[in-house]
Protein backbone atom coordinates (compact mmCIF):
# COMPACT_ATOMS: atom_id res chain seq x y z
CA UNK A 1 0.00 0.00 0.00
CA UNK A 2 1.23 3.45 -0.78
CA UNK A 3 2.51 5.05 2.38
CA UNK A 4 0.34 7.74 3.86
CA UNK A 5 -2.63 7.29 1.54
CA UNK A 6 -5.76 5.82 3.09
CA UNK A 7 -7.61 3.59 0.63
CA UNK A 8 -11.07 4.72 -0.35
CA UNK A 9 -12.37 1.21 -0.34
CA UNK A 10 -10.89 -1.97 1.07
CA UNK A 11 -12.42 -5.34 0.33
CA UNK A 12 -10.92 -8.03 2.49
CA UNK A 13 -11.38 -11.77 2.07
CA UNK A 14 -14.82 -11.30 0.55
CA UNK A 15 -16.99 -14.34 -0.06
CA UNK A 16 -20.30 -14.27 -1.92
CA UNK A 17 -21.84 -17.71 -2.28
CA UNK A 18 -25.01 -18.68 -4.11
CA UNK A 19 -25.71 -22.13 -2.70
CA UNK A 20 -22.77 -24.27 -3.68
CA UNK A 21 -21.50 -21.73 -6.19
CA UNK A 22 -18.72 -19.60 -4.77
CA UNK A 23 -19.04 -16.59 -7.07
CA UNK A 24 -16.61 -14.54 -5.01
CA UNK A 25 -14.29 -16.74 -3.01
CA UNK A 26 -11.84 -14.81 -0.90
CA UNK A 27 -11.19 -11.70 -2.98
CA UNK A 28 -9.20 -8.82 -1.49
CA UNK A 29 -8.75 -5.54 -3.28
CA UNK A 30 -8.32 -1.87 -2.47
CA UNK A 31 -8.82 1.37 -4.40
CA UNK A 32 -6.94 4.57 -3.58
CA UNK A 33 -8.40 8.06 -3.97
CA UNK A 34 -7.91 9.48 -7.46
CA UNK A 35 -7.01 6.25 -9.23
CA UNK A 36 -8.67 4.00 -11.77
CA UNK A 37 -8.49 0.30 -10.97
CA UNK A 38 -9.52 -2.09 -13.72
CA UNK A 39 -10.92 -5.39 -12.50
CA UNK A 40 -10.35 -7.72 -15.42
CA UNK A 41 -11.74 -11.19 -15.97
CA UNK A 42 -14.00 -13.41 -18.03
CA UNK A 43 -17.71 -13.77 -17.38
CA UNK A 44 -18.13 -16.15 -14.48
CA UNK A 45 -15.06 -14.80 -12.72
CA UNK A 46 -17.22 -13.06 -10.12
CA UNK A 47 -16.16 -9.52 -10.94
CA UNK A 48 -19.69 -8.13 -11.29
CA UNK A 49 -20.76 -9.82 -8.05
CA UNK A 50 -17.79 -8.23 -6.31
CA UNK A 51 -18.75 -4.67 -7.24
CA UNK A 52 -22.42 -5.30 -6.55
CA UNK A 53 -21.36 -6.30 -3.06
CA UNK A 54 -19.36 -3.09 -2.67
CA UNK A 55 -22.40 -1.10 -3.78
CA UNK A 56 -24.57 -2.97 -1.30
CA UNK A 57 -26.76 -4.55 -3.99
CA UNK A 58 -25.53 -8.00 -3.05
CA UNK A 59 -25.23 -9.39 0.46
CA UNK A 60 -21.80 -10.92 1.08
CA UNK A 61 -21.55 -14.32 2.74
CA UNK A 62 -18.52 -13.25 4.72
CA UNK A 63 -15.65 -10.80 4.60
CA UNK A 64 -15.21 -7.09 5.11
CA UNK A 65 -15.93 -4.11 2.89
CA UNK A 66 -14.62 -0.84 4.28
CA UNK A 67 -15.58 2.34 2.47
CA UNK A 68 -13.80 5.53 3.46
CA UNK A 69 -12.40 3.89 6.57
CA UNK A 70 -15.93 3.17 7.79
CA UNK A 71 -17.78 -0.11 7.61
CA UNK A 72 -17.00 -3.46 9.08
CA UNK A 73 -14.18 -3.10 11.52
CA UNK A 74 -13.99 -6.71 12.58
CA UNK A 75 -12.89 -8.98 9.75
CA UNK A 76 -15.31 -11.71 8.85
CA UNK A 77 -18.32 -9.64 9.75
CA UNK A 78 -20.80 -8.99 6.99
CA UNK A 79 -21.29 -5.32 6.29
CA UNK A 80 -23.46 -3.76 3.67
CA UNK A 81 -24.48 -0.22 4.33
CA UNK A 82 -25.56 2.26 1.73
CA UNK A 83 -22.98 4.92 1.20
CA UNK A 84 -23.75 7.86 -1.09
CA UNK A 85 -20.05 8.32 -1.78
CA UNK A 86 -20.11 5.09 -3.78
CA UNK A 87 -22.08 5.20 -7.03
CA UNK A 88 -22.53 2.84 -9.92
CA UNK A 89 -22.50 2.98 -13.74
CA UNK A 90 -24.08 0.05 -15.52
CA UNK A 91 -23.27 -1.91 -18.64
CA UNK A 92 -26.60 -1.37 -20.32
CA UNK A 93 -27.62 2.29 -20.06
CA UNK A 94 -30.96 1.58 -21.73
CA UNK A 95 -31.98 -0.82 -18.99
CA UNK A 96 -30.57 1.39 -16.24
CA UNK A 97 -32.92 4.25 -17.06
CA UNK A 98 -36.60 4.16 -16.20
CA UNK A 99 -38.38 4.73 -19.55
CA UNK A 100 -41.11 6.72 -17.79
CA UNK A 101 -38.82 9.32 -16.25
CA UNK A 102 -37.46 12.39 -17.97
CA UNK A 103 -33.71 12.90 -18.00
CA UNK A 104 -34.15 15.70 -15.49
CA UNK A 105 -36.01 13.41 -13.09
CA UNK A 106 -33.43 10.67 -13.57
CA UNK A 107 -30.50 12.91 -12.70
CA UNK A 108 -32.37 14.63 -9.87
CA UNK A 109 -33.49 11.32 -8.37
CA UNK A 110 -30.43 10.83 -6.18
CA UNK A 111 -30.72 14.36 -4.80
CA UNK A 112 -34.38 13.84 -3.99
CA UNK A 113 -33.67 10.55 -2.23
CA UNK A 114 -30.90 12.25 -0.27
CA UNK A 115 -33.39 14.96 0.62
CA UNK A 116 -31.42 17.88 -0.74
CA UNK A 117 -33.93 20.57 -1.41
CA UNK A 118 -31.92 23.60 -2.49
CA UNK A 119 -30.44 24.21 -5.91
CA UNK A 120 -31.68 21.02 -7.48
CA UNK A 121 -32.00 22.45 -10.97
CA UNK A 122 -28.52 23.98 -10.80
CA UNK A 123 -26.98 20.71 -9.68
CA UNK A 124 -28.73 18.73 -12.40
CA UNK A 125 -27.64 21.31 -14.94
CA UNK A 126 -24.03 21.10 -13.78
CA UNK A 127 -24.00 17.30 -13.70
CA UNK A 128 -25.35 17.01 -17.25
CA UNK A 129 -22.94 19.62 -18.46
CA UNK A 130 -20.00 17.88 -16.82
CA UNK A 131 -21.09 14.60 -18.42
CA UNK A 132 -20.86 16.32 -21.80
CA UNK A 133 -24.58 16.77 -22.45
CA UNK A 134 -24.72 20.38 -23.58
CA UNK A 135 -26.73 22.48 -23.50
CA UNK A 136 -28.14 20.65 -20.46
CA UNK A 137 -31.54 22.33 -20.50
CA UNK A 138 -32.22 20.81 -23.91
CA UNK A 139 -32.03 17.36 -22.30
CA UNK A 140 -34.17 18.18 -19.23
CA UNK A 141 -37.56 17.25 -20.73
CA UNK A 142 -36.38 14.35 -22.89
CA UNK A 143 -37.07 10.69 -22.22
CA UNK A 144 -34.28 8.09 -22.44
CA UNK A 145 -35.56 6.64 -25.71
CA UNK A 146 -35.24 10.05 -27.35
CA UNK A 147 -31.43 10.16 -27.02
CA UNK A 148 -28.67 7.93 -28.41
CA UNK A 149 -26.98 5.06 -26.58
CA UNK A 150 -23.87 7.08 -25.85
CA UNK A 151 -25.94 9.94 -24.47
CA UNK A 152 -27.88 7.50 -22.28
CA UNK A 153 -24.62 6.34 -20.71
CA UNK A 154 -23.74 9.99 -20.10
CA UNK A 155 -27.10 10.42 -18.34
CA UNK A 156 -26.28 7.43 -16.11
CA UNK A 157 -22.89 8.99 -15.32
CA UNK A 158 -24.50 12.38 -14.61
CA UNK A 159 -27.05 10.70 -12.32
CA UNK A 160 -24.20 9.13 -10.36
CA UNK A 161 -21.96 12.23 -10.33
CA UNK A 162 -24.71 14.45 -8.97
CA UNK A 163 -24.28 12.56 -5.68
CA UNK A 164 -20.67 13.77 -5.56
CA UNK A 165 -19.32 10.27 -5.05
CA UNK A 166 -15.73 9.53 -4.16
CA UNK A 167 -15.82 6.12 -5.79
CA UNK A 168 -17.54 5.21 -9.02
CA UNK A 169 -18.14 1.52 -9.73
CA UNK A 170 -18.43 0.95 -13.46
CA UNK A 171 -19.62 -2.40 -14.82
CA UNK A 172 -18.48 -2.78 -18.45
CA UNK A 173 -19.39 0.87 -19.09
CA UNK A 174 -18.73 0.79 -22.83
CA UNK A 175 -19.38 -2.85 -23.77
CA UNK A 176 -22.84 -2.13 -25.17
CA UNK A 177 -21.82 1.04 -27.01
CA UNK A 178 -20.67 1.54 -30.57
CA UNK A 179 -16.92 1.51 -31.07
CA UNK A 180 -16.65 5.16 -32.07
CA UNK A 181 -18.56 6.28 -28.95
CA UNK A 182 -16.44 4.18 -26.62
CA UNK A 183 -13.43 6.46 -26.51
CA UNK A 184 -15.48 9.54 -25.64
CA UNK A 185 -17.10 7.84 -22.64
CA UNK A 186 -13.73 6.53 -21.43
CA UNK A 187 -12.19 9.96 -21.88
CA UNK A 188 -15.03 11.42 -19.83
CA UNK A 189 -14.39 8.94 -17.03
CA UNK A 190 -10.66 9.62 -17.02
CA UNK A 191 -11.32 13.38 -17.04
CA UNK A 192 -13.62 13.08 -14.00
CA UNK A 193 -10.83 11.27 -12.15
CA UNK A 194 -8.19 13.81 -13.10
CA UNK A 195 -10.33 16.86 -12.41
CA UNK A 196 -12.28 15.87 -9.31
CA UNK A 197 -10.07 13.32 -7.57
CA UNK A 198 -12.75 10.66 -8.00
CA UNK A 199 -11.67 7.01 -7.92
CA UNK A 200 -13.10 4.47 -10.35
CA UNK A 201 -13.28 0.71 -10.05
CA UNK A 202 -14.08 -0.45 -13.55
CA UNK A 203 -15.05 -4.03 -14.29
CA UNK A 204 -14.24 -5.16 -17.80
CA UNK A 205 -13.12 -8.04 -19.97
CA UNK A 206 -11.49 -5.55 -22.31
CA UNK A 207 -7.77 -5.17 -21.71
CA UNK A 208 -7.60 -2.27 -24.17
CA UNK A 209 -9.92 -0.32 -21.86
CA UNK A 210 -7.51 -0.92 -18.98
CA UNK A 211 -4.66 0.34 -21.12
CA UNK A 212 -6.74 3.41 -22.01
CA UNK A 213 -7.69 4.59 -18.54
CA UNK A 214 -6.49 2.40 -15.64
CA UNK A 215 -3.67 3.13 -13.19
CA UNK A 216 -3.76 -0.37 -11.82
CA UNK A 217 -5.17 -3.71 -12.95
CA UNK A 218 -6.48 -6.62 -10.89
CA UNK A 219 -7.11 -9.89 -12.72
CA UNK A 220 -9.91 -12.06 -11.39
CA UNK A 221 -10.31 -15.79 -11.95
CA UNK A 222 -12.99 -17.96 -10.33
CA UNK A 223 -13.83 -15.56 -7.52
CA UNK A 224 -10.33 -14.45 -6.61
CA UNK A 225 -7.82 -11.84 -7.61
CA UNK A 226 -4.98 -13.87 -9.13
CA UNK A 227 -2.74 -11.00 -10.15
CA UNK A 228 -2.59 -7.32 -9.38
CA UNK A 229 -0.18 -4.53 -10.22
CA UNK A 230 0.35 -1.28 -12.11
CA UNK A 231 -1.22 -1.32 -15.58
CA UNK A 232 2.07 -1.18 -17.46
CA UNK A 233 3.44 -4.11 -15.53
CA UNK A 234 0.35 -6.29 -15.85
CA UNK A 235 -0.22 -5.60 -19.53
CA UNK A 236 3.37 -5.53 -20.70
CA UNK A 237 5.05 -7.97 -18.36
CA UNK A 238 2.39 -10.21 -16.81
CA UNK A 239 3.52 -12.88 -14.41
CA UNK A 240 0.50 -15.06 -13.75
CA UNK A 241 0.01 -17.61 -16.56
CA UNK A 242 -3.70 -16.72 -16.74
CA UNK A 243 -2.99 -13.03 -17.29
CA UNK A 244 -0.40 -13.99 -19.83
CA UNK A 245 -2.86 -16.18 -21.74
CA UNK A 246 -5.58 -13.51 -21.65
CA UNK A 247 -3.19 -10.94 -23.00
CA UNK A 248 -1.94 -13.22 -25.76
CA UNK A 249 -5.39 -13.51 -27.31
CA UNK A 250 -6.10 -9.78 -27.49
CA UNK A 251 -6.27 -9.28 -31.24
CA UNK A 252 -4.00 -6.23 -31.12
CA UNK A 253 -1.09 -8.06 -29.54
CA UNK A 254 -0.07 -10.12 -32.52
CA UNK A 255 3.58 -10.16 -31.60
CA UNK A 256 2.84 -12.46 -28.70
CA UNK A 257 2.52 -16.14 -29.33
CA UNK A 258 -1.12 -17.07 -28.77
CA UNK A 259 -1.93 -19.26 -25.82
CA UNK A 260 -5.52 -20.27 -26.33
CA UNK A 261 -6.69 -22.00 -23.19
CA UNK A 262 -8.89 -25.03 -23.73
CA UNK A 263 -12.41 -25.18 -22.36
CA UNK A 264 -14.19 -22.46 -20.48
CA UNK A 265 -13.96 -21.05 -17.00
CA UNK A 266 -15.09 -23.84 -14.59
CA UNK A 267 -18.38 -23.84 -12.75
CA UNK A 268 -17.97 -21.84 -9.51
CA UNK A 269 -19.79 -24.65 -7.73
CA UNK A 270 -16.88 -26.94 -8.57
CA UNK A 271 -13.71 -24.94 -8.00
CA UNK A 272 -10.68 -27.17 -8.66
CA UNK A 273 -8.52 -28.07 -5.67
CA UNK A 274 -5.02 -26.69 -5.31
CA UNK A 275 -4.40 -23.75 -7.57
CA UNK A 276 -7.80 -23.06 -9.10
CA UNK A 277 -6.21 -22.39 -12.48
CA UNK A 278 -4.08 -25.53 -12.65
CA UNK A 279 -6.36 -27.65 -14.89
CA UNK A 280 -6.05 -25.03 -17.66
CA UNK A 281 -2.58 -23.69 -16.88
CA UNK A 282 -0.34 -23.63 -19.94
CA UNK A 283 2.74 -23.20 -17.79
CA UNK A 284 2.00 -26.37 -15.86
CA UNK A 285 1.09 -28.22 -19.03
CA UNK A 286 4.29 -27.16 -20.77
CA UNK A 287 6.24 -29.30 -18.33
CA UNK A 288 9.02 -26.78 -17.89
CA UNK A 289 8.28 -26.21 -14.23
CA UNK A 290 10.65 -27.94 -11.82
CA UNK A 291 9.13 -30.85 -9.96
CA UNK A 292 9.22 -28.93 -6.66
CA UNK A 293 6.73 -26.45 -8.05
CA UNK A 294 4.61 -28.56 -10.39
CA UNK A 295 3.84 -31.04 -7.65
CA UNK A 296 2.29 -28.31 -5.51
CA UNK A 297 -0.06 -26.83 -8.16
CA UNK A 298 -2.75 -29.59 -8.10
CA UNK A 299 -2.85 -29.86 -4.31
CA UNK A 300 -1.73 -26.65 -2.61
CA UNK A 301 -3.75 -23.47 -2.93
CA UNK A 302 -1.40 -20.54 -3.53
CA UNK A 303 -4.00 -18.38 -1.76
CA UNK A 304 -5.38 -15.02 -2.80
CA UNK A 305 -3.29 -11.95 -3.41
CA UNK A 306 -3.03 -9.94 -0.19
CA UNK A 307 -5.14 -6.82 0.36
CA UNK A 308 -2.24 -4.41 0.59
CA UNK A 309 -0.41 -5.80 -2.42
CA UNK A 310 0.67 -3.26 -5.00
CA UNK A 311 2.03 -6.04 -7.14
CA UNK A 312 1.39 -9.72 -6.59
CA UNK A 313 0.52 -12.93 -8.41
CA UNK A 314 -1.14 -15.97 -6.88
CA UNK A 315 0.97 -18.58 -8.61
CA UNK A 316 3.45 -21.07 -7.17
CA UNK A 317 5.83 -20.51 -10.05
CA UNK A 318 5.94 -16.80 -9.26
CA UNK A 319 5.94 -16.89 -5.46
CA UNK A 320 8.59 -19.57 -5.24
CA UNK A 321 10.90 -17.18 -6.99
CA UNK A 322 11.39 -19.31 -10.06
CA UNK A 323 11.59 -16.06 -12.00
CA UNK A 324 8.61 -15.88 -14.31
CA UNK A 325 10.43 -14.09 -17.09
CA UNK A 326 13.02 -16.84 -17.23
CA UNK A 327 10.26 -19.40 -17.38
CA UNK A 328 8.34 -17.59 -20.09
CA UNK A 329 11.45 -17.07 -22.19
CA UNK A 330 11.23 -20.69 -23.32
CA UNK A 331 7.59 -21.67 -23.32
CA UNK A 332 7.14 -25.26 -24.46
Amino acid sequence: MRAGVTPLVEVEDLHVHFGAARAVDGASVHVLPGEVLALVGESGSGKTTLIRAIQGLQKPTSGTIRVDGAGGSSPGKVQTIFNPSVQMVFQDPTGALNPRQTIYEIVAEGLRIKGEAGGEAEQVWAALSRAGLRPPERFFPMYPHEVSGGQRQRVVIAGAMVMEPRLLLADEPVASLDASIRGEILALMRRLVDETGLAILVVTHDLGLAWNIADRVAVMYLGRIVETGPTEQILEDPRHPYTRALLSVVPETREMEQQILTGEIPDPARIPPGCRFHPRCPLLQSGILPETISSRCPTDDPGPTPLEAVSAAACWAVTSGAGPSALWASPG
Binding site: S180, E184, L186, L207, W211, T231, L235, E236
Partner: peptide
Protein backbone atom coordinates in the same frame (compact mmCIF):
# COMPACT_ATOMS: atom_id res chain seq x y z
CA UNK B 1 -9.13 -0.57 -30.04
CA UNK B 2 -5.80 0.54 -28.59
CA UNK B 3 -2.63 -1.42 -29.08
CA UNK B 4 -1.41 -2.47 -25.67
CA UNK B 5 2.12 -1.20 -25.19
CA UNK B 6 1.60 1.76 -27.51
CA UNK B 7 2.52 4.85 -25.49
CA UNK B 8 0.34 7.08 -27.66
CA UNK B 9 -2.88 5.50 -26.45
CA UNK B 10 -1.87 5.05 -22.80
CA UNK B 11 -4.25 7.13 -20.65
CA UNK B 12 -5.58 8.60 -23.89
CA UNK B 13 -8.80 6.91 -25.01
CA UNK B 14 -9.78 8.09 -28.43
CA UNK B 15 -13.21 8.33 -29.93
CA UNK B 16 -15.44 10.35 -32.19
CA UNK B 17 -17.90 13.00 -31.13
CA UNK B 18 -21.54 12.59 -32.05
CA UNK B 19 -23.39 9.44 -32.93
Amino acid sequence: FPTIGDEGSRMAPSGLGGD
